[in-house]
Amino acid sequence: MGLESLIGGEGFLTTTVNGLVNWGRKNALWPMPFGTACCAIEMMATFSGRYDISRFGAEVVRFSPRQSDLLIVSGRISLKMMPVLQKIYRQMPEPKWVISMGACASCGGVFDTYTLIQGVDQFIPVDVYVPGCPPRPESLLDAVFEIQELVGEDRFDSGKHGS
């Protein structure tokens, strides 16, 4: 078509606006760590140098929900903590994703007692579950890849959940 001659030998690519925005978005996730128990230690290990989550663009850990788009629930959530978790989740701007890390956050784990929430997905939407007690940092990284897949499927110009 003669298009190549017009750009003077430079390479080029074609994409959609949606693809371009999502490419940027999924490689710059800003996690909000919600570490309440031992799983949080593995989460910290994932953030630190040895496993280095920054290789995948998710190293900007924000302790303010208003600046984050990835909530990592790692640890036991008690009766008293659940309203806090919900409040933090609601404070995060859209679009947002949630990882439920470890057996406790996903289903209560071994703590089937009066005070422990048996799975945070009963009360907030969860996108990816990470099995394990605690999960290895590799598992959490894998969950981040899953989230990246989900971000890639998203339409940037509508809410995460469609409108």
């Binding site: 009766l79 659940m82 309203p83 919900q86 989740y89 609601r90 859209e94 089937d112 007692t113 009066y114 005070t115 422990l116 929430i117 048996q118 009963q122 009360f123 907030i124 939407p125 509508s158 809410g159 995460k160 959940h161 469609g162 409108s163």
Partner: peptide, 19 residues
Amino acid sequence: PLKGRDERRQFPKVVARGD
């Protein structure tokens, strides 16, 4: 009771509706 009297299910559910 060890598993409580259903207190641990008494929370509002945050659900997605539209956007």
